[in-house]
Design a protein around this nucleic acid. Structure first.
Length: 567
DNA sequence: ATTGTGCATGTTAAT
DNA sequence: TTAACATGCACAATG
């Protein structure tokens, strides 16, 4: 019987009864399941970092703004650390009626591989490793009775090197196993004691894949990394439902992934910022069940992609972050790839071709045939497409959010949005006030239900407010400018930019548009009467022109000149 | 002539 | 320096 163990290097305490259960908590942004001891140490260290370094011993409740005294250990009973970032005071904890839940794990606990290298990806939270060392152990921040003990399935053989994390339990040289080496050995049929150990403790481990979707009565809980300002908000809803099975069963297909390739860790390189779904659609159990057809279904955030001009253009090819494609989409060995059906939040299934191009001894993954989808969702460059998976079943779901109106943003933020770095840090990402999440589906927007939204319940508008309660900038209109890249200005970029500016120029009222249409000056109209209204009828097409010059005769009559345009 | 396809190349960020 | 990726571009397919 496989033995599940604490993922902390140097500990690896066996789970009681060989199963993950209450008392074994998700930590480190959901990337690790730790035993009580290690989990508490982690929490404590994070607290110390927040209180001692960030704000000199003071911190505000992420919900009510109440200032909390440091105390680190002593005050621990009056506030709690949010894995999503920030701190929640006791009053808010009580008022919310929610149990504090452990952060949802990444869909595969130790996948993607880069994340596996470090059970505690503290840098992703803006925390230094130093603060993790040598701290005392305190009470747990996660009530043990809320930990979901349901099993997690390993979708890929872990290649984690736990001994790269010396942070929590000091020197672990004796107790640490380099899993990567061991797995390699294991794969090469060179089994030994260590590989057997790992096979037992990790590779065959069945961990909870529940997403921390803990529902209390009348309560929806969000999922992964919910920004504090959004946590109390009403859930966003997926529309019902589809019927067809998923195009591929990730839980099955991906199980063989490790034998085909070792995906570059999404946490590394550019793609890493697209891997952290800071905003996760919160849906009710009922809705999730409608989508998945499974009462136990959970939704797993995979990754997101900020659409480039190329992605949103007419070519119909969406370049996928390599690491994400390899980690979360079915493995493909041939450039032709394979068809992939992805369901949107409205329930519509989109059929794409998932393939790659050989590129510099590497691969460039693309999703072909996205034009209908892009157009249907009215997406444009700068908007974000998100990919998720429903478990069980592995059904792929795509969502999106429109880019905010970048006119209000400084160039640096515009650029950051475009390249995906704007919300890079899940711990502090909520500070990005200008990034608004909306849905392109009116139905999606207006079918919110559940808990009253403390912010937006009055008018039903889902234009989410920022942390301070100030309204976010309006969603970009149809003339929403492209998120401009300050660099990489090539001919095409300029052309696209001009297109956008042209579009702005074409924002006209109906009257203004009418005003641009002029009858040919040399043609006299026939006047027809339709329902008591006189209409001028011309044999020649109108002239598209714009008033440019006005002059006044001595007699007082006005001459108006038009700049004639080609037609 | 236009659109689609496949690959190459330049830019950028991470290391 | 390297890898990722946005996009350029040549060629093929299609209308």
């Amino acid at each position: 019987m496989a033995t599940n163990r604490c993922m902390n290097a140097g500990c690896m305490a066996a789970a009681p009864g060989g199963e993950w259960r209450k008392g074994w908590a998700l930590r480190a942004g959901g990337f690790a399941i730790l035993c009580d001891k290690c989990g508490l140490a982690y929490d404590q260290n994070v607290f110390c970092e927040i209180f001692h370094q960030k704000e000199s011993g003071w911190r505000e409740c992420s919900y009510c703004g109440k200032r909390l005294h440091c105390g680190c250990i002593a005050s621990r009973n009056s506030f709690d650390l949010l894995d999503s970032g920030g701190v929640q005071c006791l009053n808010c904890i009580k008022a919310s009626g929610l149990q504090f839940i452990p952060t949802q794990p990444m869909p595969k606990l130790l996948t993607p591989p880069q994340m596996r290298q470090r059970p505690f990806p503290l840098s992703a939270r803006g925390l230094s490793e130093e603060v993790l060392q040598g701290r005392a152990i305190d009470m747990p921040s996660v009530p043990l009775d809320t930990f979901d003990p349901s099993p997690v399935k390993w979708e890929e053989k872990p290649i984690l090197s736990l001994n790269r994390n010396p942070s929590l339990i000091g020197n672990s040289s004796q107790n640490t196993l380099d899993l990567k080496e061991i797995i390699t050995e294991n794969n090469s049929s060179n089994n030994n004691n260590n590989s057997n150990k790992i096979s037992e403790s990790l590779a065959e481990t069945s961990l909870s894949m529940s997403l921390g979707l803990v529902n209390t009565p009348n309560t929806e809980r969000s999922i992964m990394f919910p920004p504090p300002e959004l946590t109390g908000q009403r859930a966003r809803h997926f529309m019902p439902k589809l019927s067809k099975p998923a195009p591929f069963d990730a839980s099955k297909d991906l199980s063989s992934l490790s034998h085909m390739r070792v995906a570059r860790p999404p946490a590394e390189g550019r793609g890493r910022n697209q891997l952290l779904p800071r905003y996760w659609p919160r849906i009710t159990d009922q809705e999730l069940q409608q989508i998945s057809g499974d009462s136990n279904a959970t939704i797993v955030p995979l990754f997101e992609k900020v659409l480039s001009a190329s992605d949103a253009g007419r070519i119909g090819r969406l370049v996928l972050p390599k690491a994400c494609a390899e980690a979360y989409f079915p493995p493909i060995s041939q450039p032709e790839g394979r068809p992939l059906t992805i369901q949107d939040a409205k329930g519509k299934e989109w059929h794409f071709q998932f393939r790659f191009w050989p590129n510099n001894n590497s691969r460039m993954y693309v999703l072909e045939g996205v034009t209908p989808c892009i157009q249907s969702l009215q997406l444009q460059a700068g908007d974000t497409v998100t990919f998720s998976r429903i478990e069980p079943g592995g059904k792929l779901v795509m969502g999106f959010r429109k880019a905010t109106n970048t006119a209000t943003l400084p160039d640096s933020q515009i650029s950051a949005i475009a390249n995906g770095t704007f919300m890079a840090d899940p711990f502090f990402a909520p500070q990005g006030d200008n990034l608004q999440i909306v849905s392109g589906y009116p139905g999606f927007i207006h079918t919110m239900k559940g808990l009253p939204d403390p912010v937006n319940s009055s008018d039903g508008d889902v234009s989410w407010l920022n942390k301070t309660g100030r309204p976010l900038p309006n969603e970009g209109s149809l003339l929403q400018p492209l998120p401009k890249r300050s660099r990489n200005i090539g001919p095409k970029s300029r052309r696209l930019s001009m297109d956008s500016e042209d579009a702005l120029e074409l924002k006209l009222t109906w009257e203004e548009a009418q005003d641009l249409l002029r009858p040919p000056p040399t043609v006299k109209p026939n006047v027809v009467l339709i329902e008591d209204y006189e209409f001028e009828e011309y044999d020649e097409p109108p002239i598209f022109g714009k008033r440019t010059i006005f002059t006044v005769r001595a007699s007082g009559s006005v001459l108006q000149f038009f700049m004639l345009c080609t037609r």
